[in-house]
Simulated assay, not measured.
Amino acid sequence: MTRARVRWNGAAVTRATRTSAARGLRLGTEHVLQVARDRVPIEEGTLERSGTATVDEASLTGAVAFDTPYAVRQHEDMGLRHDAGRTAKFLELPMTEEADTVGEIIAAEIRRSLR
C-alpha cells in the first residue's frame, strides 16, 4: 500500500487565488476597455482617450469608464449618427457581450496560480 502525505497551506492558496483573481480582473477590464474603444464614437479621439479601466483589489471589483462632459449623452442617445462601426451603447454592449470572455480570463489566471 502506497502512502502519501499532503500538506495543505490554505492561507497561501487563498492569497495566491485572490492575487490571481485580481490580475485576471485587471486583464478582463482592459479587454472590455479595448473593445469599447473600438466602438466609441470618434470625432477627435478625446472620448476614446478618456477611457480607463480600474480594479479595486480589496473588493475584487472592476470598472471601465469614459470621462468627458459628453460621454453619457454619446452613450445613451440612440438618435445620434456615428461613423461605421461606432455606436451609442459603446460601453454597455461590450460589457454584456464580453462577460463570458472576462470570466474565462479570470479563471485562466486563477488556474495558472494553482499549478
Rank of each mutant, 00 (worst) to 15 (best):
A53L: 09
H31Y: 15
G10D: 10
E92I: 06
A16H: 10
T52D: 09
R115L: 13
T52K: 12
A12Q: 10
L47N: 07
H82F: 09
A36S: 09
I106F: 01
G28K: 00
R7C: 04
A108H: 05
R115C: 11
R73P: 12
H75M: 11
I42F: 05
I105E: 11
D67S: 15
R5V: 11
G85H: 01
R115K: 04
T101G: 09
L47E: 02
A11T: 06
R49C: 08
A58N: 08
F90I: 15
M78S: 15
V13D: 13
A4G: 08
Q34W: 01
V32T: 04
P41L: 03
E98V: 02
T2N: 10
R3D: 10
L114T: 01
T101L: 09
L93Y: 10
T2D: 12
M1E: 05
T17Q: 02
R15K: 13
E98C: 05
D67M: 13
A4R: 12
E48F: 03
V6F: 15
G103W: 00
A22I: 07
A16S: 00
A12Y: 08
M1G: 13
F66I: 01
R23W: 03
A12C: 03
R18G: 01
E97T: 07
T29K: 06
A108Y: 07
A65H: 07
A63W: 10
L47P: 02
T29S: 04
I42Y: 14
A63E: 14
R26Y: 06
A4K: 14
T46C: 02
R23D: 03
L33S: 09
A21F: 04
R86W: 00
A108P: 07
G24K: 01
R15S: 05
A58V: 11
G51K: 10
G28L: 00
T29E: 00
T87L: 13
L33H: 02
P94H: 05
L27F: 03
A88F: 08
E92A: 14
E98H: 02
R112H: 09
R37K: 12
P41T: 07
T87F: 10
A88G: 13
M95W: 06
T19K: 15
T87I: 08
V64S: 01
